[in-house]
């Protein structure tokens, strides 16, 4: 049976993995290649690297880092944060990444999804979306709106409609981050995850809000329907190993790769 995936996300700033912690600002956690290799040894199913300052600095993703990861990590990993065009996508894939993650760029220029899918295959395109809970209205009937720039800018786009659109355009997978749940450690936003998992036929990765391994199991259950659960602080800060997370998920009866 297809296993539910545990994905660890590493935000990279100035060549170091970083994590924003309440009241403490950004903590430097270590070298992205070393940390990626350690999670690989622990049995993580997939890794995500976000170059969180590349967009703001209008520069390409650090390709040397991607090459370094690919030398040590023999599982799929995706790279995002500084993809500006097809050439950037090609560079990242040729450096050994399996997938690229698109977010704000796809909102501004949706054709990048279809162009990327045509050039490299749908499976390469992970569409990252940040959803904010709003009052349902004509423009956003699902009650969730797509936001960009880390939640600072609203777009007026309905989250469920956007999910359907990106699937049509050729995204191979959706990584759904709840702005409301992100950082709360109170659990994933189950309602929007369910809505999107039911609206599309491509896999959905749930992101934002995991505070315990049980939260991961919750969002992966068939009644919610995420195919993968993404974590960061559970492993980076709280000290869970990937094995411990998977054992806890397996106890609920969900299939995992151990």
């Amino acid at each position: 049976m297809l296993a539910k995936r545990v994905i660890v996300c590493l935000d990279v700033r100035n060549g170091k993995v970083t994590k924003g912690v309440k009241f403490e600002g950004n903590l430097d956690l270590g070298d992205p290649v070393e940390m990626g290799a350690e999670y690989y040894r622990q049995g993580v199913d997939e890794l995500v690297f976000y170059d969180i300052t590349a967009s703001a600095e209008n520069r390409a993703i650090d390709i040397e880092m991607v090459r370094g990861v690919a030398k040590h990590v023999f599982i799929p990993f995706s790279v995002g944060g500084g993809i500006r065009n097809l050439q950037d996508m090609r560079d990242v894939l040729l450096a050994g990444a399996e997938k690229v993650s698109l977010n704000s760029l796809a909102v501004r220029t949706p054709s990048i999804i279809s162009d990327g899918a045509r050039a490299f295959g749908n499976q390469c395109i992970v569409l990252g979306m940040d959803a904010l809970k709003v009052s349902p209205c004509e423009q956003t009937p699902s009650g969730y709106e797509i936001v960009v720039k880390g939640g600072r800018e609203r777009t007026g786009i309905d989250a469920v409609a956007w999910a359907r659109r990106v699937e049509e355009l050729g995204a191979g997978e959706i990584c759904l981050n709840s702005i409301d749940a992100d950082g709360t450690k109170a659990g994933y936003e189950l309602e929007i995850t369910r809505k999107i998992a039911q609206a599309v036929s491509i896999p959905v990765i749930a992101s934002g809000g995991a505070g315990t391994p049980q939260h991961m199991a919750e969002v992966l259950m068939p009644d919610v329907g995420a195919d993968a659960a993404l974590v960061a602080s559970l492993t980076h800060i709280d000290g869970y190993t990937v094995g411990q997370l998977k054992q806890a998920i397996a106890k609920t009866g969900l299939p995992v790769r151990i």
Binding site: L2, N122, A197, S201, P203, P222, A228
Partner: peptide
């Protein structure tokens, strides 16, 4: 019947 298996088949399978 819904929920149908996702396509692409993506992930770790025995």
């Amino acid at each position: 019947p819904s929920p149908r298996p996702k396509v692409p088949h993506m992930g770790w399978n025995p």
